[in-house]
Nucleic acid binder design. Structure first.
Lengths: 150, 150
DNA sequence: CTCCTTTAATTGCGGACACAACTATTGTAG
DNA sequence: CTACAATAGTTGTGTCCGCAATTAAAGGAG
């Protein structure tokens, strides 16, 4: 166990780090024509996948790895844009739901095909099926690993 | 090509995105005892690898994918901490060099082993040699791909 | 040499986010 | 029932960073 990375590790690590920052910027750029950024898009996706197209603020924050305040302000923007609305819970008055509006759903259906193409073009481009599966194996394990060490 | 991701792509993509955000937070956390964050650490590494342990601001900004203003302020912090100093170029008076100080070099030698251990523990944990090589192949290609499409 | 363009760095401004403090509501121990 | 603890969300404050404007210097065309 050396105190430094092996050449192979270094190659993987450096290219990974480099790719991540460039990739995120590129995806964000591809979403810009729709007036969305990555964070907004993720909110819309999560809401669209939820029952009744709505989620409690705290659950949404957790899913997006956002702090409560971060989510509050992100939602402010989406609410101002009419894509999401805040709905008070009738059963628990502490709770606010973030709910997808029809405009939000429309926006997502507009943006999704481009976003998917963008992910294919930036991320999966040139990967074989085997590599994609391998990547899934690696990062699922990493995700679980990271979740366990929290 | 469908407008949606295949199950295999989705698995890879979701776990990748999830891992990235958690991973970065974990690495940052591991560096905190040294009073550094990821960005600071990256600056120190780049400078330590450079000739004379110094780089022009613009080259450093480019290497780190930071905007000029972003680098200026990041350096402000490191300069205040005594880890880096600004050195004017004698040949081109527009240019400022960011130069590693002895204290900066010391800090890096202190932090590096922990950081490497952190990368091994968070990122490479449980990966086979083959997977590491495969990961290098995939992300080197992605990096080149992304650089080409800019 | 003079003017114009390009390059390097900084500063003003605004956006996004985390932490901590606060309010409001709910759950729970006694 | 009352008091305390836990939970949900918002707001104040500070940090990090990008964009646009600015300053300063170097390079190039005529």
């Amino acid at each position: 166990m050396a105190t430094w990375l092996t050449a192979s590790e270094m190659r993987a690590w450096r290219s990974f780090i480099e790719s991540v920052s460039t990739l995120m910027a590129a995806l964000e750029n591809d979403l810009a024509p729709f007036g969305l950024n990555n964070g907004d898009y993720e909110v819309l996706v999560r809401l669209s996948e939820a029952d009744d197209q709505r989620l409690r603020m705290c659950d949404l924050a957790c899913a997006l790895h956002l702090s409560p305040s971060g989510l509050t302000r992100r939602l402010d923007g989406l609410v101002k844009g009419g894509l999401v609305e805040r709905v008070a819970s009738p059963t628990d008055r502490r709770v606010m739901y973030a709910a997808l509006t029809p405009a939000g759903r429309t926006k997502l259906t507009e943006a999704a095909p481009d976003h998917v193409a963008s992910v294919r073009n930036r991320f999966f481009k040139g990967m074989t099926k085997d590599q994609i599966r391998e990547l899934g194996d690696i990062f699922e394990k990493m995700r679980d690993n990271l979740a366990a060490s929290t």
